[in-house]
Design a protein around this nucleic acid. Structure first.
Lengths: 212, 212
DNA sequence: TACAGAACGGAATCGTTCGTTCCGTAGTAT
DNA sequence: ATACTACGGAACGAACGATTCCGTTCTGTA
């Protein structure tokens, strides 16, 4: 049932669709106020390829934000559907959302564009699900009860603020600090081994380099 | 031994010195790429008052960064001078640095200006002291040993990324998450009561407002 | 073998945003 | 009065970046 393999021009267009979104995600999660030309360069396409798909920079940002909320919602639903160990359901939720970089795609971009009605709705649904996941973990006694769902949201943002090296290294480090965060959230208190190597002095010092 | 109370004009100049630095700290820790006019407005002075004191924006940034490093160094030395409970010495260090917002004054500004030789030196000294504080806490068995000094640096940055409401509320929330972080660092594992009210939904939602 | 249209690449356009400089005032001290 | 220090804030000029435009390249179709 493979669709007719689209010939040359259309195939490229379809590939561009994805390349542009990927590039936009990479660029705007790194720098929410990056110029749109940075996206086109990273995607390896011209600027017009972008404007053909999104009426404006704002349109692209809205799309990214919507995707980020969708990822968030999907992760929440996945967790809520999990049976078995409540703590595992909760940690899976946290890890999925950190990996999706939802915070960087949503709240970090907020304020740089006009939220649509649709985004508002998705955001409300995401908040609702976050509360459900939180409540379930607390009621199961796995999550310390003095931490609220709003606290969790800010913890996501703190982890998302880590940006070091390439995307892979960043993910690795985020997992390291997520482990630390989870250690502080777990009831009863306990320490898990920390994954991934800690930051090296070189990694830390490199950031002092001038904009070049 | 009060110095001759400086008469009118000079008194204002002295007051401006401080007003400008305060404003610059507030503005640039909120937004490292803020325009210099934002600083003069916040300080309630004209732009020329700024340029009279600092040759350029870069000069002002260097000054702020240097001050930030000094605060960091002072907090470290204070902690190292503490006798008694090693864990308390460590938590005091963490809290002092979070309160000084050292991260926002140093690494967050790095890359927006050319580091001077002097800054480089201060930074090296700060790193050295950080290692001493870390080592002491680990050797005393108070700090979990799989966390490195570099990890602590990134944890500072994560806490500094929290910016919500006014300065006071931000500090309050940072204390809340610092408590959480310390819970995950402490050996043996234990939970402390969380200070300050958690973020409210309003606080979280407000940030979706357009740039207006 | 032309022809119309979709998709592009990327230069040109047009505001806007800043860092910095300049100029006219006002307060001080001699 | 005169010279000097500090200022406030307008003016200037360069840079940046969103968006538009135009010429070109493919595809599919007569």
């Amino acid at each position: 049932m493979t669709a007719t393999p689209m010939s040359g021009r259309r195939a490229q267009a379809a590939r561009n669709d994805e390349a542009i979104l990927q590039a936009a995600r990479a660029v705007f999660t790194t720098d929410p106020s990056a110029p749109i030309s940075a996206v086109s360069e990273r995607a390896g396409v011209g600027i017009s390829a972008l404007y053909r798909r999104y009426g404006s920079k704002e349109g692209l940002l809205q799309k990214l934000c919507g995707d980020g909320l969708e990822l968030y919602i999907a992760a929440s639903e996945k967790s809520l559907a999990m049976r078995g160990d409540p703590w595992e359901a909760f940690t899976t939720y946290m890890r999925d959302i950190v990996d999706a970089d939802s915070s960087s795609l949503t709240i970090a971009l907020a304020g740089t564009f006009q939220p649509t009605e649709e985004l508002y709705h998705a955001s409300a649904r995401a908040s609702q699900l976050a509360i459900e996941v939180h409540d379930r973990a607390v009621k199961a006694g796995a999550l310390r009860p003095d931490v609220t769902a709003a606290d969790i949201a800010l913890l996501f943002e703190q982890i998302a603020s880590i940006k070091l090296g390439d995307g892979q290294r960043t993910t690795e480090l985020r997992h390291r600090y997520l482990t630390l965060v989870l250690d502080s959230l777990r009831n009863p208190p306990a320490h898990q081994p920390l994954p991934g190597p800690p930051p090296t002095d070189e990694e830390l010092e490199q950031r002092w380099a001038p904009p070049s």
